[in-house]
Design a protein around this nucleic acid. Structure first.
Lengths: 249, 249
DNA sequence: TCGAATCAGGCAATAACCTGCAACCATGCT
DNA sequence: AGCATGGTTGCAGGTTATTGCCTGATTCGA
């Protein structure tokens, strides 16, 4: 068995299976795990696969590979994005935060919409590059690898020089008492700045996040203008927000 | 048994079997393994087969033929990226420009490399988010949709506050007299700033770009530190650069 | 936090490789 | 015929690649 054959086998397996395990490969190819490990290392060094503990996963070569990631509650997020896209009016200046729901919205903006969008989210920016008429301003800073957003004082400073019409917040947790809360301190500071740099604020949120609380507070619930979820307008979970005068969608 | 006959036999065998082993061939053709090895070497030099340890495989088995047509001269760019990745030393501060070759490099950086990378390129940043130990600073600004890089005074301002160890320029055109030149004015300004913000500058360039000129000048050829291409070190096209004291890789 | 799984690096054995050399052969010239 | 030439082949040797095993470190999941 030539090394190249094994490599071809591994790549083939990854095309269909997305993930391979070292121990599986060693059994089906009849070589030691060490050899497989070395194979995976070579393939990883060549950028053909991504090595993970216990095996490897396919490393799709185009820059949109984050699309492959399994998105939690994807269907719901698509629904929310579809609802929300009418909220952005032509020629507005918009700040878009990160998050999968916001990315979904960026992908779904009407092609004829003309607007200026500030964002600190890599995926949102990538999606918007496909849009024909939106002007994109990316706010620089240190990049958080898991959230794929920039943070730090540079982002905050940029935001302090903006007065946007509307911001669209990625919402980790929303509670009628505590408001919008976050788990990451750096992101919190940025989101606060986003909230304060816009006249109106829109939160896109899947129902299960409503009523949960994280350690850091971004803003009072009353600071929200519009809340978009998959819930019916009269759902009791939304009642307190409605009573504060927040528009429910 | 003539050499040509053996070559024909080997190619025929590869058509049907995908791989051949040196030992097998030597037995079925009744010649020494060394002779087969020499045959394979000739066929490989002629590009008819791919030589591997233990024998040879047909070209269709090997990667590049069916993958990634979308990136122009992708193979060459991979080679260049592989060459260049050793140029980034641990704990350096690096500025990475946009371009497909640079993206390729970003994808191929050794996973154990610890470094800080400033970039204004969306694809580069996306690739780097998969890297375990690199700190990424994204330089914000207006996003050019086709090049997927940010431009504008904000980027230039950020760069003016940086003194990096090395910058890696995406190179549209390189000429021994005119130096590095660009076709887009906005990008030109940013690239100038990148060049001036780093102590050393590395240009990754595919051979066909050497000797071409665009309207806007980014820098003198002498401002380059290292030139990475697929050409042999002694290639006449590189001679003028070598004589300027630019390191050729 | 702990135990088990997994990993990285080193080591040795084997196989494959490359280089130089001498033998061989066909050819063409003197 | 005699000889030089160039191409090819096999062999000896020293070098490199590959692999499995081992050990200690790291990482993961409970």
């Amino acid at each position: 068995m030539l090394k190249e054959e094994r490599h071809a086998f591994i790549l083939k397996a990854l095309e269909t299976r997305h993930k391979v395990l070292t121990i599986e490969l060693s059994q089906s190819l009849g070589v030691s795990e060490d050899t497989i490990r070395r194979d995976l290392k070579e393939l990883a060094d060549a950028g053909r696969v991504k090595k993970v503990h216990g095996g490897a996963v396919s490393h799709s070569l185009n820059p949109f590979h984050y699309k492959d990631r399994e998105i939690y509650a994807h269907e719901e997020k698509i629904l929310i994005a579809e609802k929300a896209k009418s909220l952005i009016r032509p020629h507005q200046v918009v700040i878009m935060d990160g998050g999968t729901t916001n990315t979904e919205l960026a992908r779904r903006l009407p092609p004829d919409l003309k607007a200026t969008i500030f964002t600190n989210s890599l995926p949102v920016a990538v999606e918007l590059t496909d849009h024909p008429s939106i002007e994109i301003i990316f706010m620089g800073g240190r990049l958080l690898k898991d959230a794929q957003v920039t943070v730090g004082e540079e982002v905050v400073a940029t935001l302090s020089g903006i007065r946007a019409d509307v911001c669209i917040l990625g919402t980790r947790s929303l509670d009628a008492q505590m408001g919008i809360t976050e788990i990451d301190w750096e992101e919190t500071k940025v989101k606060r700045a986003i909230l304060h740099a816009a006249n109106e604020s829109i939160a896109l949120v899947i129902p299960e996040k409503i009523g949960t609380v994280q350690p850091y507070i971004i803003g009072e619930p009353g600071e929200l203008s519009v809340l978009v979820s998959t819930l019916a307008r009269r759902d009791p979970r939304l009642r307190p927000f409605h009573e504060m005068g927040i528009e429910i969608l």
